[in-house]
């Protein structure tokens, strides 16, 4: 016995699978019907990013930034903090991510890669974005959990992080790497948490994150106009 080798991931886990699952159930119960507003905003984000109009993408990033600030205040401080004293620290990080995305949107640094020369990058980026926005709430029933505990974009961190990674992966600006740091970090943390809890869906966030990071890392092709 003794030493760092004696620690395992489970030694850092503060709560049980049941508590974590019910955390989202209670979150949804308390917020209903805000989920409908969140899903409507998700549809707006997806439509604006697909259309790629400069003003539209700016609005999309402002919505993403606002989503992170809601997650910081309502989820991390209001909910997660009750079972993990790291909740307040995560709230700060989520708020920082929100500010970064808001600044990108407000400053107009949200130009997307050219779709024409980057089809093979654009499509997976959109797929990751759409997964965060619309696939995530369906994961709960798909993996045997109640739909009442579904994780919704703008209200829970995992779908918000995935949607953000999908969107920033499409940016032309190198600031995309900065904007991806916190969501990617959360995806890793979430995967470790879910894996330690023994949940089968632990791979979803890091899998989608991996796709987004590949898209993000590939060089952008500029199409001559």
């Amino acid at each position: 016995m003794g030493g760092w080798s004696s620690y395992s991931l489970s030694d850092f886990l503060l709560f049980s699978p049941q508590v974590y699952e019910r955390l989202f159930v209670l979150h949804n119960q308390d917020l209903w019907p805000v989920q409908l507003v969140a899903l409507a905003l998700a549809a707006v984000v997806l439509a604006l990013v697909i259309r790629r109009a400069p003003v539209g993408t700016r609005i999309a990033f402002v919505i993403l930034g606002a989503a992170w600030i809601v997650v910081a205040a309502v989820f991390f401080l209001g909910r997660y903090q009750t079972i993990n004293w790291l909740g307040a620290n995560f709230a700060v990080l989520a708020a920082i991510e929100g500010i970064v995305l808001l600044m990108l949107g407000l400053a107009g640094r949200t130009g997307l890669m050219d779709q024409q020369g980057n089809r093979l990058k654009f499509a997976p980026g959109i797929a990751v974005l759409a997964s965060g926005l619309f696939l995530y709430p369906l994961l709960a029933p798909a993996f045997g959990f109640t739909i009442a505990g579904a994780q919704v974009f703008g209200l829970a961190p995992d779908p918000t992080a995935i949607a953000t990674l999908g969107a920033v992966a499409l940016l032309k600006s190198r600031l995309r790497f900065l904007a991806a740091l916190i969501p990617a970090g959360w995806c890793v943390f979430s995967a470790l948490t879910l894996s330690t809890l023994g949940r089968a869906d632990f791979f979803v966030a890091p899998g989608l994150m991996g796709v987004a990071l590949v898209v993000m890392s590939l060089p952008r092709t500029t199409t001559p106009r």
Binding site: L14, F15, S16, Q18, V19, R22, L23, L26, R79, I83
Partner: peptide, 12 residues
């Protein structure tokens, strides 16, 4: 440890 960390869940 873990067992009573139930947040403000009234059921738990």
């Amino acid at each position: 440890w873990i067992t009573f960390n139930v947040g403000n869940d009234p059921v738990l």
